[in-house]
Amino acid sequence: MNNADKRLEVTIKDMVLRNPVMTASGTFGYGYDFEDFMSLESLGGIVVKATTGGNREGNAYPRMAETSSGMLNAVGLQNKGVDYFCNTLYNKIKDINTNMIVNVSGSSVEEYVEVAEKINELKNIPGIELNISCPNVKQGGMAFGTDPKMAAEVVKAVRKVYNKTLIVKLSPNVTSIVEIAKSAEGEGADSLSLINTLLGMAVDTEKRKPLLSTVTGGLSGPAIKPVALRCVWQVAKQTKLPLIGIGGIMNARDAIEFILVGATAIEVGTANFINPAISQEIVYGISQYLDRHNIKNIADIRGII
């Protein structure tokens, strides 16, 4: 593995990533689930499954529907809560040699603050990704990411208690993503990751019913990549924060596209389900791209579009 390729190193606030390739929350478990398939140390970072204040069972089955070039999910933030994370899961991931980032979610400002405050105490967690964009929960989640005032309120409150790298994950389900991005930037976010899933639905014509128990769910996969690229490009032009591009990245070429429109790093999501070694392969593919074009540093092509 080309861990030593210094050309790929990027920085997001206080976090040094050995390369821009991270994995997206909800698609990579807690990292160790992928140890059979690849080297976790080859990655720039891993964003683990969303963590909330208390235990959540998530939504009823069926939670998934395959769509053209993508899939819908309606998992609904299933997790065992922040205390279980701190007491049990943290011990299983704290020695993984990459940036282990926790995706923080909640139904109220207080819940986000509680989770962030507890994660702040964990020495080997250098950052959190504030999930104000989950479309699959009745309360909270996306509600915070679709209203600039609510976004500002939750980022401000979390910023007060969290002193490491604070990434805010944005929803594409808005009229102006730039407006939300500026709200988060204004309240002290260190970085923005975008996009979370697009709200969608699928129908079974034989049963004449929705395919998801929740009717609507979050669309991911290559189907959303053009939307994600547009969002990153727009936000890159309007904010100064380092951006993490997410949305349908299936290979190194897709990752480079996000970097060209202004992303400092990228997160690989749904592709992990299809090829569990893809994130490592993307790191290698980016190196090859730099070789092929004789580029000295990944920063040289960042945001040139």
Partner: peptide
């Protein structure tokens, strides 16, 4: 199921 190896949480 989307993944088959425990990470997507779709097949509960």
């Amino acid at each position: 199921m989307a993944c088959g190896f425990g990470v997507c949480l779709c097949c509960v």
